[in-house]
Amino acid sequence: MAFNSSSVTMTEVVLSLRKLNVFYGSSLAVRDVNIDIPPNQVVAFIGPSGCGKSTVLRCLNRMNDLIPSARVEGQIFYHGKDIYDKVVDPVDLRRRIGMVFQKPNPFPKSIYDNIAFGARINGYKGDMDELVETSLRKAALWDEVKDQLKKSGLALSGGQQQRLCIARAIALQPDVILMDEPCSALDPISTLKVEDLIHELEAQYTIVIVTHNMQQASRVSDYTAFFNAEPTEKGGKVGYLVEYDKTDKIFNSPQEQATQEYVSGRFG
């Protein structure tokens, strides 16, 4: 693992993964991941299928807690505090670290209620109409839906649904937004809109995005972590971090052979 601290010098860190190992049952899924994620940057996780990039992402807001067999070793510091510490409440953490999923998954409620849901359950006391409008504006969806807020979220197109999901995450005024291959179910034009949106959101949020699409990683991210997988003796696969650096370094002058081969499209 080449963790080049000279090129990635960070004074301030939002999320910091230290010696992270993730297990499903007794089998190790990802081993020894060390990553520092700076504020207001976009960090992309790339790598072949089964290398554990989504698994690592889902550790960052403890969504892996929902899988009974999943277990985590090592630390993830969020503003210096270990999120796997007993005193940290995952429900509270998930309000600060939002998530957008691979397949758009709006609730079968109105567009308005899709946004308002998270705020309501978290005890939001402010002006709901304003929150809904602001969130939709930030997600670049307001102009398209402002006259049909009562319509079901499921009536929107796939790309609009995904931006609705982003708006829903923004409504909680999070600090970090995790995106798990947010464009893989979208057409190229919708993908472009979401990518533009990611650029705009960067000013206010820290974004971690898992993507299969290397062009996307190079377009949207400031830092890139390349994961790879290697076979284990038991016949399974274990993922590991190969290299983490500024995106242009990963794509233009990576330190590792494997990274070079992957980003040039020679495998994966």
């Binding site: 807001n61 969504m63 929902l66 429900v91 509270d92 998930r94 309000r95 939002g98 998530m99 999923f101 998954n105 709006p106 609730f107 849901f117 998270g118 359950i121 978290n122 999901c165 829903r168 995450a169 909680l172």
Partner: peptide, 9 residues
């Protein structure tokens, strides 16, 4: 998942 990710119990 969507619900949990929004900080719902």
């Amino acid at each position: 998942q969507a619900g949990f990710a929004l900080g719902a119990t």
